[in-house]
Amino acid sequence: MTISLDLAYHAPASLDETLEILSEQAGRTVLLAGGTDVVPSLRDDLISPNRIVDLKRVEGLGDLAVIDGALHVGCLVTFSDLIGSPAVHARLPVLAEMAGMVASVGIRNRATLVGNICSAVPSCDAGPLLLALGARVHLVSREGVRTVDVDDWFEGPRRTAIRSGEVVTHVTIPLPASGHGAAYARLSRTRGEDLAQACVAVVLEPGDRPRIAFGAVAPTPVRARRIEALLHAQGLDAGAIDAAVGLVAEEVAPITDVRATRRYRLAMCEVMLRRAVTAAAGRAAGDGPVHGTPLM
């Protein structure tokens, strides 16, 4: 069980100190927040850094607050923090719905939302929902600050738009208008330990184009733009939803792996899309299933 790596460990107390360390040498650095992905990756030799920069002592990175109509989620905010936040429950309950489906309590107490999109595995739970919510990723380096639309964030399995020397300080999630409805549906073999076999996030805002994204069925989380356009044009009646379900195979490209076959994933994406759109529309109308009710 031992990790056999010669590692330097830094635990800076401020962002300035962090950026100073990152600029010192172009070493193979891994940034550490909750560690639930970093530690297994170290052990499995997926990464072989020569230094770890632990962000947990940096002041201000754990902020979770509504600022100017957007939810600010600092890079140290855990999934359990989201689940326990009254602001999240009041303004963006679908975020707590998603967080509650991630792994287990023991993982959620440690794993962070930002870490989830930084490790960027194709099955990451936060990815599709942040895409559907139109989130923005905020980075800082010695050169200054930079913002990336989450639409441009995921570049491949475990690859993102982050550059060497940068730290993701937080994401901002614009709060959907009141009267919106959203849903996150996730399929896995067992509760509590399995990665998603497929997942879908749906956000419906009154008068606006629906936003829909899938996870675990392509190299990165993906927006389903044809489905969005179709539902925008045709509305959300049964016929339109049937037509949207008919487009799923054009939007996603699942593979067969140990968790599911390609065919099963495709078929289940159709079921999940139907249920998630229906749940989100119901919530927008004020009578959908309570957030957290498993749709699968």
């Binding site: 550490l32 560690g35 639930t36 530690v39 947990k56 023991g106 993982i107 107490n109």
Partner: peptide, 18 residues
């Protein structure tokens, strides 16, 4: 599992230095 400041965490995923 151990409780870290009262919250359950998986000690196989935590570095002692943390």
């Amino acid at each position: 599992t151990v409780l870290l400041d009262g919250r359950s965490v998986r000690s196989c995923l935590v570095l002692a230095v943390e």
